[in-house]
Amino acid sequence: MLLGTRKGLFKGALPPRVLLCQERSDVEFAGTFPRKRVTWVSFTRSATDMLLEEAVKRRVDVRGAHLITLTPPRAESVPALLGLFHPVIGLVEGFRWLPKLELIEAIASDDANTRFIAGSVDRKARRLTLLRGDLQAVVAPFSLFSQSGDGPAPDFGRLRLTDHGRTVSLGDYEASADAVLYELDPAHRRRLKSLRRDSEQSLGAALLRLRKQRGLRQGDFAPISAKEIARIERNLITQPHTRTLEVIASRLQVRPDEIADY
């Protein structure tokens, strides 16, 4: 839900799943959407005031919806905003935002959790806080952005988010969002590992995929031990005995030569 901007910003159709609220009645209509899946983006302080007024006056239920204020709201309105929305991002000055159009597109995208929409620098603590499109934050120590060879050193005073949220620019220094998340977010690493495993062509990877598809555990292949199944799946055994393959295939209800196709 966008507040305090004009459709002209988008030079055509709005991105999918984005709704522009230009009038007070739009806020009431938007309030009928399932709130936990709604992110309000307010471009101006007056738009934030309007949202708050309408939410209170017309009892629009926004509790639990996300709110991003690209311009920090009035200090007096902060307690009410915090009471109605969760999380509220942009309450203080100092955030560097992705360009508006890219920001909206990144939030509404399917890979919002891998793109950065905002960042702020804490020089005293030597930390950079980066906010993803799904509004989860990661905190990166300055040391994460090491200089490579005779390349440029990161200039934390010139933080920008670019390339639709896929690049963190620190002056002339650039870091890929993927590389930053790989180091800071265990869930991101697990997702990558799972993607790699799914794409792998080995017999072990095929067995793992098929076993999971059948809802079986490694211990479900007696008399083959769970340990041996694990060793095959981890490619520690690349050519199992014919009899072993026959037992596994029978349990998976396929022919032995079909396992590798999965």
């Binding site: 952005f145 639709h164 650039e174 930053v180």
Partner: peptide
């Protein structure tokens, strides 16, 4: 369209990043 190697990338395996608007 852009083709980049940024200062901080996941370096293995060696690659270039191709970008087209929001796609990578």
């Amino acid at each position: 369209w852009k083709v980049k190697i940024r200062e901080k990338e996941r370096v293995e395996p060696p690659h270039v990043t191709v970008m087209h608007r929001a796609d990578e």
